[in-house]
């Protein structure tokens, strides 16, 4: 069964195998949204579970997420044509002054793998860029900071969102090595996650609330 094979290849992080089999599935007439949900999203859900159980570490998650992302690129035009709605829209970035990329990118990929539409604003993202993303339809703002020197820019961003009058409709998530639940509460974020897998759960929770 092709769907099961793609799902398995996503979990094992075989990017080339995933891409080939996704093309094959599309050629055989399997709908794009079915490949998305039953192979990619379900595969990544299992990757997240394996990570939380301690079976997977960050490298396996990175490798699987990359394989998933390659497949998603192939599916995207079809999904748009099919009018498939994402689970939600997330704007993600590392805060101003901070150039750490890997953790933020992993969270972005895991969110995509869970069915969210992700606008990756990159690193060193100024508060106004996050505000702009909200004005362009983002529902969740996800901020990462890896430095104790830059994490104060999470507060600055939340303040900028409030100043733009968007605080009520924006869901704000924060994370990164020095960030804690207590810090998230202190800056007035709606959610905190200690790792990429927990971030997906938190985003699902926030969007459902």
């Amino acid at each position: 069964m092709l769907i099961a094979e793609i799902r398995e290849a996503v979990i094992n992080g075989q990017a080339k195998v995933v891409a080939t089999k996704v093309e094959q599935a599309l050629n055989e007439g399997v709908p794009a949204d079915r490949i998305l949900h039953d192979a990619l999203i379900d595969g990544m859900r299992e990757v997240g579970e394996l990570f939380e159980q301690g079976e997977f570490f960050v490298p396996e998650m990175l490798i699987a997420a990359r394989a998933m992302k390659g497949a998603l690129e192939i599916l995207k035009p079809r999904l748009v044509a099919q009018g498939v709605e994402p689970l939600g829209r997330v704007a993600i970035g590392t805060v101003k002054g901070d150039l750490h990329d890997i953790g933020k990118s992993l969270v972005a990929m895991m969110l995509e793998g869970a069915g969210f539409e992700v606008m990756d604003l990159g690193v060193d993202v100024a508060p106004e860029k996050f505000v702009e993303a909200l004005q362009n339809g983002a529902q969740i703002v996800a901020m990462s900071a890896l430095l104790t020197t830059t994490m104060s820019n999470m507060k600055a961003t939340i303040d900028a969102i409030a100043a733009a009058g968007l605080r009520d409709k924006a869901l704000v998530m924060v994370g990164g090595a020095p960030v804690t639940q207590a810090y998230a509460d202190q800056v007035g974020a709606d959610g905190y996650a200690p790792d990429a897998s927990a971030a997906v759960r938190k985003a699902r929770e926030l969007i459902a609330s």
């Binding site: 990175l62 490798i63 997420a65 990359r66 150039l99 750490h100 990329d101 890997i102 990118s105 990159g122 690193v123 060193d124």
Partner: peptide, 12 residues
Amino acid sequence: TNHPDFSDRFSQ
């Protein structure tokens, strides 16, 4: 750190 291909190359 802000190279567009860094994450992808790193993941590989």
